[in-house]
Lab assay of single mutants.
Amino acid sequence: WVPTKREEKYGVAFYNYDARGADELSLQIGDTVHILETYEGWYRGYTLRKKSKKGIFPASYIHLKE
Rank of each mutant, 00 (worst) to 15 (best):
residue 1 W to A: 08
residue 36 L to P: 00
residue 58 P to S: 03
residue 37 E to T: 05
residue 44 R to F: 15
residue 65 K to L: 15
residue 30 G to S: 02
residue 5 K to Q: 10
residue 48 L to K: 04
residue 31 D to S: 05
residue 2 V to F: 10
residue 45 G to E: 03
residue 51 K to T: 12
residue 18 D to C: 13
residue 55 G to S: 02
residue 13 A to T: 03
residue 18 D to K: 13
residue 56 I to H: 03
residue 61 Y to E: 02
residue 13 A to Q: 02
residue 64 L to F: 09
residue 25 L to P: 00
residue 18 D to V: 14
residue 28 Q to C: 12
residue 18 D to R: 12
residue 39 Y to C: 14
residue 22 A to V: 11
residue 41 G to Y: 05
residue 25 L to D: 03
residue 41 G to C: 08
residue 9 K to C: 14
residue 9 K to Y: 09
residue 17 Y to A: 01
residue 16 N to P: 12
residue 29 I to H: 04
residue 5 K to E: 10
residue 53 K to D: 08
residue 12 V to W: 08
residue 42 W to C: 05
residue 63 H to T: 11
residue 66 E to Y: 13
residue 34 H to W: 14
residue 31 D to I: 06
residue 45 G to D: 01
residue 27 L to M: 01
residue 53 K to A: 08
residue 40 E to F: 08
residue 40 E to R: 11
residue 57 F to G: 01
residue 10 Y to K: 04
residue 55 G to R: 01
residue 29 I to K: 13
residue 7 E to C: 15
residue 3 P to F: 04
residue 20 R to S: 07
residue 2 V to C: 12
residue 32 T to W: 15
residue 29 I to Q: 07
residue 58 P to K: 03
residue 10 Y to V: 08
residue 40 E to K: 12
residue 39 Y to M: 14
residue 42 W to L: 02
residue 43 Y to Q: 00
residue 24 E to M: 04
residue 8 E to W: 11
residue 3 P to D: 09
residue 45 G to M: 05
residue 4 T to K: 07
residue 24 E to C: 07
residue 21 G to E: 09
residue 21 G to F: 07
residue 37 E to D: 07
residue 12 V to S: 02
residue 12 V to E: 05
residue 6 R to L: 11
residue 11 G to N: 01
residue 32 T to I: 15
residue 54 K to E: 09
residue 41 G to M: 05
residue 16 N to W: 08
residue 59 A to W: 05
residue 46 Y to C: 11
residue 52 S to N: 13
residue 2 V to S: 09
residue 57 F to R: 01
residue 24 E to H: 06
residue 8 E to M: 12
residue 47 T to I: 15
residue 13 A to C: 12
residue 48 L to T: 09
residue 22 A to S: 11
residue 36 L to C: 14
residue 13 A to F: 03
residue 44 R to V: 07
residue 64 L to S: 02
residue 9 K to S: 14
residue 41 G to N: 07
residue 35 I to Q: 00
residue 28 Q to T: 11
residue 19 A to R: 01
residue 64 L to V: 10
residue 46 Y to Q: 03
residue 39 Y to F: 13
residue 11 G to F: 04
residue 25 L to G: 00
residue 46 Y to E: 03
residue 24 E to W: 05
residue 14 F to H: 13
residue 27 L to Q: 01
residue 61 Y to C: 15
residue 23 D to N: 11
residue 60 S to Q: 13
residue 58 P to I: 12
residue 38 T to F: 12
residue 38 T to D: 05
residue 37 E to P: 00
residue 28 Q to L: 11
residue 18 D to I: 14
residue 15 Y to E: 15
residue 65 K to D: 11
residue 59 A to M: 10
residue 8 E to F: 12
residue 63 H to D: 07
residue 56 I to M: 10
residue 28 Q to E: 10
residue 4 T to G: 09
residue 65 K to R: 13
residue 66 E to V: 13
residue 47 T to E: 07
residue 1 W to Q: 07
residue 24 E to A: 03
residue 56 I to D: 01
residue 25 L to V: 07
residue 39 Y to V: 07
residue 10 Y to M: 07
residue 59 A to N: 03
residue 62 I to Q: 01
residue 25 L to H: 02
residue 7 E to W: 14
residue 48 L to A: 07
residue 32 T to C: 15
residue 55 G to P: 00
residue 46 Y to A: 02
residue 2 V to I: 13
residue 24 E to P: 02
residue 16 N to M: 07
residue 32 T to M: 14
residue 19 A to W: 01
residue 48 L to H: 10
residue 26 S to C: 07
residue 7 E to Q: 11
residue 10 Y to H: 10
residue 48 L to V: 09
residue 39 Y to P: 01
residue 20 R to G: 06
residue 24 E to G: 03
residue 22 A to L: 10
residue 6 R to H: 12
residue 23 D to W: 11
residue 2 V to E: 09
residue 60 S to C: 14
residue 53 K to L: 11
residue 61 Y to P: 02
residue 65 K to M: 15
residue 60 S to V: 10
residue 65 K to C: 15
residue 31 D to G: 02
residue 9 K to I: 10
residue 39 Y to K: 15
residue 20 R to T: 08
residue 12 V to Y: 08
residue 57 F to Q: 03
residue 53 K to C: 09
residue 24 E to N: 02
residue 55 G to Q: 03
residue 38 T to W: 11
residue 10 Y to W: 15
residue 52 S to K: 10
residue 32 T to N: 08
residue 59 A to H: 06
residue 26 S to Q: 05
residue 30 G to N: 02
residue 8 E to P: 10
residue 57 F to T: 01
residue 58 P to L: 09
residue 36 L to F: 07
residue 52 S to R: 10
residue 24 E to Y: 05
residue 4 T to F: 09
residue 6 R to S: 12
residue 52 S to T: 11
residue 13 A to V: 13
residue 22 A to R: 09
residue 48 L to Q: 04
residue 32 T to E: 14
residue 26 S to M: 03
residue 36 L to D: 05
residue 36 L to A: 02
residue 60 S to I: 11
residue 52 S to E: 13
residue 58 P to R: 04
residue 56 I to W: 15
residue 4 T to E: 07
residue 56 I to C: 10
residue 8 E to S: 11
residue 29 I to E: 07
residue 51 K to V: 11
